Amino acid sequence: MKKDKMIRLFLVDDDALFLKSLEIEFTQNGNFIIETFRTGELCIENLSHSPDVIILDYHLDGIDKTAINGIETLDKINLSHPSIPVVMLSSQDSIEVAVNCMHHQAFDYIVKSETAFMRLQKIIETILHYKKMEKELNWYMERM
């Protein structure tokens, strides 16, 4: 598939093993250009690469306890690039965490589990479908 048809995906997680497993899954099962980051700061520094979707860990404090967490990263992404959908990941299966993520305008919230990758694939398909519909609507509205 051509590079311009590929989906640019940012994966952000301080858990190196989980990050690598996600990268491998997406590389083997789709048309993705993947960039991985172990901190929210690195993700934010690279937003000029124009990701289509960002998968972001909730905590992000495993490497550096002073690093910004996932919610702070999400807020900074939304402030500077509000059109980039962000899906939050967490090992916590908690309604409070999920509500907090949605309150901060995450597109969705996924619990890290055996089914996380399949759920992420479905969410990315949904995001791309919404983007396509939005583009078609904008095209139609411009011609009215």
Results as ranks from 00 to 15, higher is better:
G40Q: 01
W139F: 12
P51F: 01
K5T: 11
L137A: 12
Q105K: 14
I110P: 03
K20P: 07
V99K: 13
V53I: 02
E136P: 08
F10N: 01
L79W: 11
P85S: 05
F18W: 06
R38Y: 06
D108N: 10
H49S: 13
H103T: 15
N78V: 08
D93R: 14
N29F: 00
D93K: 14
H49W: 06
F107H: 04
E96R: 12
K2R: 11
F18I: 12
T39K: 01
H103S: 13
E72L: 08
A116F: 01
S80M: 10
P82N: 08
L60D: 04
Q92L: 14
F18N: 08
A98K: 07
R143H: 11
D4Q: 14
S50Y: 06
K122G: 15
S90W: 02
A98H: 01
I127K: 07
I68F: 09
E45K: 13
L79T: 15
M144G: 15
L19M: 02
D57K: 07
K132T: 08
Q28W: 00
W139N: 15
H49C: 11
L19C: 07
E45Y: 00
V86A: 03
F32Y: 10
I71P: 07
D13N: 08
V86F: 00
M144C: 12
E25Q: 03
S91Q: 10
D108Y: 05
E41K: 15
M133Y: 11
K5N: 13
D93Q: 14
K132W: 05
E96S: 14
I123G: 03
I63K: 12
R8G: 01
G40W: 00
D108F: 02
F18H: 06
N29Y: 03
E23W: 03
L9C: 05
I44T: 03
E72N: 14
Y109Q: 04
N100P: 09
M133N: 14
I55Y: 00
N31T: 00
H104N: 15
A67G: 10
E35N: 15
G30E: 01
V111N: 06
G40T: 01
